Amino acid sequence: MTFTTETLETPDGIKLRFGVQTPENAGQHILILQGRGEYIERYQETADELAARGFGCVTFDFRGHGGSSRETDDPVMGYIHDVAHYIADTGHVIDHVKQAHGIECPCVLTHSTGGLVAMAMMLDQPGLWENAVMVAPFFGLGGHDWLSLAAQFVADSMCRYGFDKQYLPGQAKLSPLAEFEPDNILTSDATRYARNVAILKEHPNLVVGGVSAGWLDACFKAQASVSDRIEQMKSGQWLLPPITMVLAGNDQVVSNQVTEDLFGGVPSVTITEIPEARHEILQERDLYRDKFWQAFDAHIARCQTA
C-alpha cells in the first residue's frame, strides 16, 4: 500500500500536495506534520508501520517543500515568511480531507518543525487534537547558546534589510543529494539515507536545500511566541492534551534542553529520550526506531485507557 496523493489550493493561491493512506483495518487516521526539507514519500515506511497498528494517516508537503508550491525564484531554497502560513495550510488540509474524504485525525504525529507548528495550533485551538506524539520537536536551535544567539542576530538582520530570500551563510551549497557521511547530524542509517536520495534523484522537484534567513527568522519568532505562552500557562490552567515528546539523545539540530526546560513537569507531557539517536529518528537505524515505536505504543495505550 502507498499514499494516494492529491493537490488542494489555498485561498492565497498555494498548491499543497497531500497524501492519504487508509488500510482496510484503519480504526482512525493520524495526521503527520513533517519537518523542514521533507516530503510525503519519506513517510511511506512510517505509514506502513502505522497501518500495522491499525492506523491510516494523512500528511502533506509544507509550502516551499516537496511537491507543494515554492515561494522563491530558487526552487530548492528552504523558505517561509511566517510560520502562520504553515499553521493556516495545516488547517486547510484538515478541513479538506474531512470534507472531501470524510477523514478526521484525532492524533497528530510531528517531526521537528512540525512540532512547532502543532504546538502553536494546540495553544490557539484547545481540543484540536485528542493527543500528540512529537519526534525531536523544534522549540530551540541545537548547539551552544552563543550559536543560537548568533543565528538569531544574523537571520533577523538579513530580514530587516530585505535579504529574507537569501541563504544563511554556509547554507547555499547544502544538498540532500550529497553522499552519506558517517558523522552527519541527521541519521546513522546509510541504507535509509540512500533510499531518500534515490527518491529525490527520481523526483528532483522534491529537493529542498539550505536554510534561508526568512525561514529561520520565522521559526525563531514562532518559538518565542510558543515559549511565552507556555510560561504563562504554567501559572494558570493547562489546556494541552496528552503529548509524548521523543527526543534524540545525539540531536545537534534542535535543542533538547529547551524542550525539557519548557515542558518538563507539565502534567500532560511525557518526555522520553533515545540515547545516541540523531535528529531524524524515523530515518534512523532500527535499534533507535524500535525504541521510538515502543514510546509510541505506550503513548497510544495510555490514551486509550485514560
Rank of each mutant, 00 (worst) to 15 (best):
I14P: 01
L16C: 03
F18E: 01
V20F: 04
P23A: 08
Q28G: 03
Q34W: 02
I40H: 10
E41F: 06
A47K: 10
D48Y: 07
G56N: 01
G56S: 00
H65E: 11
H65W: 00
R70S: 08
I80C: 14
H85Y: 12
I87Y: 08
H96E: 09
Q99F: 13
G102Q: 06
E104H: 07
P106C: 12
H111W: 03
M122C: 09
G127Y: 06
E130Y: 04
V135C: 14
F139C: 04
L141M: 12
L149E: 13
V154N: 03
C159V: 13
G162F: 02
F163Y: 08
D164F: 00
Y167H: 11
G170K: 04
Q171K: 08
L177N: 12
E179A: 13
F180H: 06
F180W: 05
F180C: 02
D183V: 12
I185W: 03
T187S: 14
H203E: 09
G209A: 03
D217Q: 14
A222F: 01
D228F: 03
I230A: 11
M233P: 09
M233K: 08
G236L: 05
L240S: 12
I243M: 11
A248R: 13
Q252M: 13
F263W: 10
P275L: 09
F292E: 01
R302H: 12
A306C: 08
